[in-house]
Design a binder for these strands. Structure first.
Length: 112
DNA sequence: TGCTTGACAGAAG
DNA sequence: CCTTCTGCCAAGC
């Protein structure tokens, strides 16, 4: 039973985008969070995919630490090898399988 | 209007 | 570990 609408209105999409960008800007240095957590906190639990879309296509997202967003398995974005380097510069370590060590570096976004 | 594409998630082989 | 599948949903064509 879903307690949220099935489809976004234009305004909701806008608010969602703003929330996503806002949350990303708050990820602490040296830690990461996931698309799913961000989507859930923004109020649209099933829109994790939209988070990635927003970070990739929204002009200005490059100024945010969007490299601190990985998927829930700790995998970095496909086709963006630099993301790993940026994270390692902050002290984030990777496991042998090439994924972020989520047990140590996952940060869960919360309301203020 | 219908089909395809992903910076996803999760499960399966 | 890797690939593939299903479910998901907005964007593109």
């Amino acid at each position: 039973m879903k307690d949220y609408p099935d489809q976004m209105t234009q305004e909701q999409a806008c608010a969602f985008r703003d929330d996503v960008l806002n949350i990303v800007s708050q990820i602490p240095r040296g830690s990461v969070t996931t698309y799913g957590h961000i989507a859930a906190l923004a109020g649209w639990p099933s829109h994790s995919r939209m988070v990635g879309r927003i970070l990739r296509y929204t002009p200005g997202a490059e100024r945010l630490p969007c490299y601190r967003v990985v998927n829930i398995e700790g995998r970095t974005a496909p086709g963006w090898s630099r993301q790993r380097l940026l994270l390692e510069e902050e002290g984030v370590t990777f496991k042998r399988n090439g994924h972020v060590d989520m047990d140590r570096f996952l940060w869960t976004p919360t309301f203020e």
